[in-house]
Write a protein that binds this DNA or RNA. Sequence first.
DNA 1: TGAATAGTGTCTTTAAGACACTATTCA
DNA 2: TGAATAGTGTCTTAAAGACACTATTCA
Lengths: 219, 219
Amino acid sequence: MEQTYQQPLVMVDTALFTILDERLCLLLARRREPPFEGVLALPGGFVHIEEDLDTTMAARRVIRGKLGIDAPYLEQLFTFSGPARDPRGWSISVAYYALIPADLLTQSQAVEAVPVETLPTLPFDHRQIVDQAIERLRGKATYSSLPAFLLPAEFTMNDLHRIYQQTIGTRLDQASFRHKILEQDIIEPIPDRFRGGAHRPAQLYRLTSRALTPFERKI
Amino acid sequence: MEQTYQQPLVMVDTALFTILDERLCLLLARRREPPFEGVLALPGGFVHIEEDLDTTMAARRVIRGKLGIDAPYLEQLFTFSGPARDPRGWSISVAYYALIPADLLTQSQAVEAVPVETLPTLPFDHRQIVDQAIERLRGKATYSSLPAFLLPAEFTMNDLHRIYQQTIGTRLDQASFRHKILEQDIIEPIPDRFRGGAHRPAQLYRLTSRALTPFERKI
DNA sequence: TGAATAGTGTCTTTAAGACACTATTCA
DNA sequence: TGAATAGTGTCTTAAAGACACTATTCA
């Protein structure tokens, strides 16, 4: 019978991104169990078939366990597998990536934020997962409202401009950026809400939709 | 111990595309075992951890079992999971899609080609897998050499033009298509090889690379 | 010859990007 | 006032797409 084949271990791993000090960072958790006990790694865990309705729910459970909150954006990335990626045996990891606005992070959470340029050596194949997640993030940033999910609910046009530049990794002309974002209808001004400083106050905006909006053309 | 959690069933399913009579078709196999014995479904099977090095190898094994050949293009699509998608229990299916040039198909193979517009009712969540595979195929067709993998090793510019139109689903100006394809350097003319008819013979081309080439801009 | 497909040159439209400018606040 | 950030209008460049044309074969 087919069903009697020995089955792989099934887990989920999550690459959690945030922007801290104008830099793209990854949230890493110190492992509390072997293998690699005490080492910084992507938050993850086994799928619990009694409680998880699918692997996305398992990823949500892992994120809630580490951060105490739900990620505003969560997407399945890729499934990694093989006999050698985990010393416990032939395993499958369904990898996810998520965007966490910095204002949702608190001291109490069991994670450390590390800039993606200075990541420590990661256990398992987590480095590969992270690289692929960054590639996906950069790719989608050019063609969608994705980077906006790294911002708090209210933000200025320049906040958005900066976050797009940080995720894409290139300079974008300020004026052209404004023209194009406004054409896309992904954000709307919040009536009578401005943010000031020693300069002209900036209009505050919010997303028009809580879902990711793909663009026809690039930003 | 974490390892003692009950593990899901782990399988792979493959959406195999080909072009027959100018139409995008899916290769379906009649199931030889329960559940859904005798029903047309995506070729698939359980991951065999003793012989498969990863899920991609499992997908290759499934394709070789049905077609006796390797697909020139194979890509992981998405991982589907949950307690209800398979009556045998909580399961994970790592779905793949592949492109099969029509000249590699023979009568002896254990599959039926069905145009994607007239698919029968499919078991499990195979309909969802197919829909997502078509979406991915159309998406990548605009930005890469992907559709060329549906053609035999040698083809004319007009073969390529037609296959792009069939996979993308829209008309493309013939002259502009030629300009843009030649700029991309994905194909090269085969010296002194032409295909005739009752008309001017057409230059035969081949791919410059066996790998998928992404384009900077759309075709 | 003309029917059929192959292949080229060039114009128009539209998107992407650059840039010069004006606006409003506070110190 | 000027430093600082906010915001607008318009020009340039380049890509996408349309179109008119020429080329070569066979019946």
